[in-house]
Structures are given as structure tokens and as C-alpha cells.
Design a protein around this nucleic acid. Structure first.
Lengths: 204, 204, 204, 204
DNA sequence: CATGAATGAGCGTTCATTCAT
DNA sequence: CATGAATGAACGCTCATTCAT
């Protein structure tokens, strides 16, 4: 876990390198981007990149880790916050979808390009992803415990479904610039909570 | 619609080639997969692949076509069938998720890699995808009209969400062979209809 | 030396193969032409070509030989004919230049593509070419002996120069369809005989 | 005009690459030569060639440009110089034939292989070639005007013929290193001026 | 004889990577 | 630290060639 800001010049440059790689990978994909592209994006020459990365693959790994760490971090603060279940759910969806629109490039790279990482590194990321899912699962469990959600709910399924749906909407959000983000967030959470069926709800 | 099994040798081998390409593209991505990988996966030599595909890109195109062919067709027959809304929804989800099992990852490839196709071919696929979504939208509209779904439902959003969620689960299905397909189908439809919230429904 | 017409079917087909190869090589060049092109041009399949040629290179060799044999043959009949020097020179130039316009494809192939032959085969052709040049040299020597040409003439140089010039004009003739062939033939022979200088000639 | 010798390493190596390409293209033709051949001829590895050329075709283009650069320039200075016709003609032939010795076959490559260049580049070269021919035509017209050449001379034909003959001899010069250049130059100009015929010239 | 199917070697090209300077 | 130059391995693709049928 690299400290967010190291004082010496090397670590600063390395951070710049990771961000440059994130930006270039996000735009062109791992194979579409060349090390030359990345180097130029941060104003150095191709060969010099190797002072900051062992290899191109290493660069991808660093970007992915950086992307998902942030993401898990935000989820952690949501999970540990003192809000009712509904708020946490909406915070989760909001965090997830806004990160797509706000060009959280490293997260996009993690989602779309991590398959190019070797098995081993992918496993590390998978754990981080799992911890995200577990945090979300925990939120759902709280919801069940508090009586907000039905007792029969399969929280593992629920977490998976929400993540999957958020990613699917994320792709659409990136493609369609005019789409109303807040509206989508609301409709997503509403669907997850209430479904589409016509009904009369009697509050507990 | 290409006949699923042609009798002559060439067409059989071509089918094998398409499935091999689907499998390799799904695992490694279009750029991560080499034509050598595909050829080896079907037990021929790299150069021989070009007896069945004009180019690597052509192979991707064929995989994508294979992935979604019948897909829209099946949706059409669901949409025009004489079933209540709930049945149609479940039929849709079932059709969608079982495709992932049957089609050797071709559908996943269609979703994740079709952007590497040239504009022209992508347009054909896009039309198919759009017509799929419109059929599903129509089903939702019927559901609203019949009173099964709430009046306020945004059917466009609903269709998009269901498709996105099915695709997300599809990815998981491809990865995890042991996952119970029928259970997932049920939970998905239930979520879409009822949401996760604890409630008492008073039938109309 | 294959007899011009053999009676059995094989040799007939072989002749067709050589002509097909000549035609295709002339149009597309040795590397631009594929064995498939040649086969299709004579209405058989690619693999079947190998009943008539050992290899593609062999095909080129046969075409070149065929092309230049014809050419030398014509020169032989000019050289041994009973005409005065001037007539022989003009006959030579005429034969050379008309063969370009009349699409003597095999000769064109010999001139343009023989460099793709292995050293060994090229040597054989070179001998044929040399014999052409020697025949022409002989004609010049006759011209000197008869007093039509100056005593000091370097007949080797002269033959080389005429051949070179004819080839150069041949290229132009092929490119420029509207060029007057007869006019060019006359001007060439006139230049070779009289040069461009203003002078008064006192006939012997 | 690229300076004949640049001082920095890159330009030196690039010159070597162009000469190597010229040599290999001249011997084997554009399609017969591989980039590996060229690289080996200058003692580097195949891939490294692309540090100096964008593509094989680019290499051909550079060779052709190298082959004719200065060529037109030299002709211009001959044409505008203050010499009698005979001197200009001899200067032309001398310039043309010595080029073949100096330029490492690049001129031969220009003549034989430029047709493999894309339309656009070929057009540039064609213009240079045309302006060369026009300058030579002008020299012949001066010769006619001054009375040195016959009134009836077709100057376009004459220019074309001289160029063609020089190129034909150029090919021989490249092949046969021992050939006496000066002797050939003299015989060529003599032929062009006086032809081969025995005659008595009565000076005007 | 002829073919369909497959092969294998070669090609031009790209590019991550190395390293002397 | 940084660079310019070179490398070498891989890639997509082509195609002459082979051979069982």
C-alpha cells in the first residue's frame, strides 16, 4: 500500500506514472496502449518508464490495485457509517455510478482490463473485489436484521446482483453522456428495494 | 440462420473453429488471444485457421454472430406468445441465462469484445441488440397495461436493467460452472418483481 | 526442348499451363501472382498445378525459356535470311518492338521477372540471350564487311546498344498505347544508322 | 536536398540503410528482397530496420528518391551552362552513366521498381523524370537551332532514346564492374551523333 | 488425374524491453 | 535519472507445397 503522498521526488513521479497509465489504459485498452503512449502522456521517453514499472503488465497491475483500493475504501466508509440501511444502499449505488461518470479511470481499467493480468495478480485483486462484495453483503445483512429486508433474502445473491447491475449501468453511463445520473441511481435503488410489481405496501 | 449442424466436413470444422475462438476470446480477450491460441485450442496449426476465417477480426465477428443468433429469435417467440407477464419475464431470464451455458461463452464475447469489430459489423449487431431490448420493453409495457406492474414504471429503464443484470450473471455463470442456474433465474425474476424489501402485499 | 506439339493430353495441358503462367506472370509479376491465380486461369484447382510444374519457380523458368526461345528463333531466321544489312537491322528492331505490342507475354516475363530465378537457371537463359546478341553482332559484322558500316565500329557495343534501346522503347510502348509503332521503328533504325547530326552524305 | 553526410549517428545509419536497401532491391527486386535481407546487408537485425524506415515500401521510396535526387539538378546545370551542343550531350551521358556507379544501384531500383510505390509517391518521381526529359529535349532543340543537328529531328524521340539507352547501359554497368565507363560514354555519344553507317561528312 | 484440406515456413510489422552512454 | 538505439520475440497473415482420398 503506497502512502498517498511520499515526499521524495521518485515516489511523486511514480504516482504520476500510475495516473498516466490509468488514463492511457482507460482510453485505449491495455493492448491498444503502448508504453510509448504512457511515457509521452507524462512527458518522458519510452525507455525511462522502466524506472517506475518493472513491465507494462506491472503498470497494469498497479493501476488496477490503485483503482480498486480507492473503491473498496469508499465502500468501507459507507459500511461503517451510521446510517439506516436504505441510505447505505443508495450511497453504494451513488458511489459506484458516479465513479463511472467522474472518469475514475483506474476503476474502469480494473473492470475492463484486469483479465490481461496473470492469474496470480488477478487473485489479489479478486480478494479486494471480494471484500467489497462482503462489505455490501454485510450491509444487506444489517438490512435483514433491522427488518427492512425480508428474512428470506439471499444476501450473497443480493450483493452480487447489485454490483452486476451497477457495472452494467456504468457501461451505459460511459457510452451515453446525456443520461441523467441521479434518476438512474434512484431507479436502481428503487428496483432493488421494491421491484416493479404493482402492490400496496403496509409499512411495519 | 446457419443450420446448427451441417453435414459436410468443412462446416463442421468451421463450427469447431467458432467455438474455439469463442472460448479463447472469452478467456483472454480479443487482443490477449492469439490466432495460435485459437488454432491450438481446436488442434490445428495456426495458418490453417485461415481456411475457416478470413482474418482474426472475421473470427470475432463470427463468434459474436453465433452468440446472439437465435437470441433475438427466442425473444420474439416469447414476446408474441400467449402467456401472462410473469411467465414472459421468467422465460426471458431463463432464455438469457441458459444461453450462456449453451453457447460456449460466445455471448460473453459478444458483450465484451464486439467493440473491436469494424463499424459496419457492429451496426448489424447493435440492431439485433436494440430489437431485443425493444421486445423486452414491450413485454414490460404489457405488464403495466395489465396492471401487473406499477403505472409509474419506466419500461425503458426496466428493460435495460434486466438485460444488464442478466449479462452480469452470465459472466458469473461462465466462470463458475457449479452455480445453480435455476436458482439464479428464480432469484433474479423475484428481485425484479418484488425487490428485496420486507412488505405486505395486498392483492388488488 | 519440348516439341511444340505433343500429341498426348498431358503435354497439351502442360502447354496450356505454361501459357497460363505466362499470362498471369506478365500481368501481376512473379510475386504478385499466386499459384491459385495460374490454376484458375486455366480452369483447374491450385493443387493440380503441381502435375505440370515442380514448383512455382519451375513455372517461371519454363515461361522464360519458352519466351526467349521464340525470340532467338526469330532472330535466327532473320540472321540467316538473304537480305542486305539495312533490312536485317530493321527486321530485328521490328521483331523486337512488335513483340512488345503483340503481347508476347512470355518474352515480357523473361525480361522483367527472370531475376527471380535461381542463379543456375538464369545462367541458362543468359546463354540464350547471349546467342541472340551474338547473332545481332554477326549482322553488324556483315554490315562492316559489306562496307555499309564503318570499319571502326565496335560490333559488340553496337549489338548491346540496339538491344538496350529496343528494350527501353519496349517499356514505353507497353505503357503508351497510342504510340505509333512503325514510326518508332523507323526512327530507331535511322538513329542507329545515321545519328542525329546534320551532314551531307556522299554515297559510295 | 538531404545533405550527403549528416554528422549525427542517426542520419549516418539511415544513409547506410538506404544504400543497403538499394543494393538488395537492385539484386532481388522489391518483392524478392526481404526486410531481413536488407537488415543483414547492413549488419543489424530485421526489426531494427523499422527505426529507419516506416515500412518496406517507405524504404523503396527513399531509395528511389536517393537514386534521382541531384540527377535532375545536375541536368539543370548542364542545360543552363554555356557550352556547345556536343559538350552538353556528352555531359549528359557522362552524368547519367556515372550516377550508376556512384549511387549504389539506387538509380536502377528507381527505374525497375518504382512502379511498386503508391500512386502518390510515384507521381512525385514521375514529375522529376519528366522535367529531366524536358531539359534534355531542350538541349536537342538548341542543337537543331544551332544547325548541329538535322532540322527533321524529333527531339522528343531523341531525348527518350538517349535516356532509354543510358538506362540500358546503366544496368550493364551495375552488373559488370570492370566495364570501361569512359569508353562507353564516348561510344554512346558518337552513336547518337553519327550513327554507325559508313559515310563522308562534308562540313558545312 | 484432380481435389479439398492442411501444413509450415516465411513475411512485414509492432513493441516491450534492455543497456551503453 | 534519462535517453537513443537496438533487440528479439511475438503477431497476423499469405501461400507454395503436400498428400490422403
Amino acid at each position: 500500500m503506497a502512502a498517498p503522498q511520499d515526499n521524495n521526488r521518485y515516489d511523486q513521479q511514480r504516482q504520476r506514472a500510475i495516473r498516466a497509465a490509468a488514463s492511457v489504459f482507460a482510453e485505449k485498452g491495455f493492448y491498444g496502449a503502448s508504453t510509448k503512449d504512457i511515457a509521452e502522456h507524462m512527458g518522458i521517453k519510452q525507455g525511462s518508464l522502466y524506472y517506475y514499472f518493472k513491465s507494462k503488465e506491472d503498470a497494469l497491475g498497479e493501476v488496477c490495485r490503485f483503482g480498486i483500493e480507492d473503491y473498496v475504501e469508499r465502500m468501507k466508509s459507507i459500511a461503517t457509517s451510521d446510517q439506516p440501511f436504505e441510505s447505505k444502499l443508495m450511497a453504494t449505488v451513488t458511489s459506484h455510478l458516479t465513479s463511472y461518470r467522474e472518469k475514475n479511470e483506474a476503476l474502469k481499467v480494473h473492470n475492463d482490463e484486469r483479465l490481461y493480468l496473470p492469474e496470480e495478480k488477478r487473485a489479489t485483486l479478486k480478494e479486494l473485489g471480494s471484500s467489497y462484495r462482503q462489505l455490501l453483503e454485510g450491509i444487506f445483512e444489517e438490512g435483514v436484521a433491522s427488518g427492512a429486508l425480508r428474512d428470506s433474502l439471499d444476501c450473497h445473491f443480493a450483493a452480487q446482483a447489485v454490483i452486476g447491475m451497477c457495472n452494467a449501468w456504468g457501461d451505459i453511463i460511459v457510452r451515453e453522456a446525456e443520461l441523467d445520473l441521479f434518476d438512474t441511481i434512484q431507479k436502481c435503488t428503487d428496483m432493488v428495494l421494491n421491484g416493479f410489481r404493482e402492490r400496496r405496501i403496509v409499512a411495519r
